Amino acid sequence: MARMDDVARLAGVSVSTVSHVLNATRAVAPQTRTRVEEAVERLAYRRNDLARSLALRKTRTVGIAIAALSNPYFGELVSALNEALEAQGYTALLGDTGDDPDREVATVERMLDQRVAGLILATAASSGEPVASRVLDQSVPLVLVDRHIDARCDQVVPLNREPVEELVGHLADLGHTRIAAVAGAAGLDTTTERLDGYLATVAARGLDDDPALILRGRSRAQDAEAAARAAFAGPHRPTAVVVLNNAMTIGTLRALRGLGLTVPHDVALVCYDDFEWADLFQPRLTAVRQDLTTMARSAVGLLLSRICGDDRAPVVERITPQLRHRESCGCPAPD
């Protein structure tokens, strides 16, 4: 295996010049750079990042610990984060916590053992604060994504309440007064804030505030299916439903189909979290779509800034999603 001094000897330059060319740490004359690059190619030289990391006592690896990779939303988020990291020359170390607090702790500990340069975390329900404190106590930069908690670190999270207010308000404009909400797992700010948006609009618009209209989907398809099946099986069923995450949307649709109810003829349906294939449903789903590219780029930008020594006060960035108006709400197909 070729070494850096072999490249320097072939190019007729010093080892430090080769290092500056490879690491872009200092300007090098174009002719010299060309000789170094030709020598690298001829010798098939590969930089030993492990040795470099040991020497500098830091890596160019960032840990990404995600609550539930089985959820397509988190899969898209990981893809966007990985793309943003690669663009800056970093490698992602991925861990799936399964939305389990104990598994989250173990995943983060393994990443800290790997000496990651920083960590991006979507916390499991009710477990984020101790884990965040553990990371920060190790002086490892940390950015939280998707789920907001009370922690002294940067956070990039979606706007939750206002988009749900828009969804419920739209259903009210269409004449619905008995609107159900399929709520997510307890202990998550996304659940609390989205449910607050539903309740605020119900109160402001004078809609039916029957507590039975709040269905406990627990952020899982199977729980949402069971809750929706029970709610829509009776004679006094809701005429519309807002589902507060994408996994629960699948379960709700299964329940309605199992009961022989059609969307939007029997039940109008809108949801928070869009699918890449939501416009393939019949009818196509009216949904709030999160801007995952912006979320990922912002999170990576904040993290790399901290890795480079930025010690400003932590910030919380709220990313505004967009309403994708389609037909499941009962409106005609948009142009």
Rank of each mutant, 00 (worst) to 15 (best):
A2G: 01
M4R: 14
D5L: 07
T17D: 05
S19E: 08
N23Y: 01
R26M: 11
V28S: 01
A29N: 14
P30V: 11
T34V: 09
A39M: 02
R42P: 07
Y45E: 09
N48G: 06
L50Y: 12
S53F: 06
L54T: 10
A55S: 14
L56H: 12
T61A: 13
A68C: 02
P72N: 06
G75C: 11
E76R: 15
V78Q: 02
A87Y: 03
Y90Q: 07
L94W: 10
T107L: 14
V108H: 07
M111Y: 13
Q114P: 03
G118T: 08
G118I: 00
L121H: 07
S126D: 15
G128I: 01
P130E: 02
L136V: 05
D137V: 01
Q138M: 10
S139V: 06
L144R: 02
D146R: 08
R147S: 09
C153G: 04
H170T: 03
G175H: 08
R178V: 00
R178S: 14
V182H: 04
A183R: 08
G187W: 02
D196V: 02
A200C: 06
A204P: 07
L207C: 11
D210M: 12
D210I: 08
L215K: 01
L215W: 00
R216L: 14
R216V: 09
E225C: 10
A228H: 00
A231D: 03
A240C: 13
V242G: 03
V243P: 07
N245Y: 07
R257I: 04
G258P: 07
V267D: 04
L269I: 05
V270G: 03
C271D: 05
C271L: 00
F275L: 15
F281E: 05
F281Y: 14
V288K: 01
A296V: 10
R297K: 11
V300R: 06
V300E: 02
L303V: 08
S305H: 00
G309V: 04
D310K: 05
E317R: 15
R324H: 11
R326V: 05
C329H: 06
G330R: 03
D335W: 02
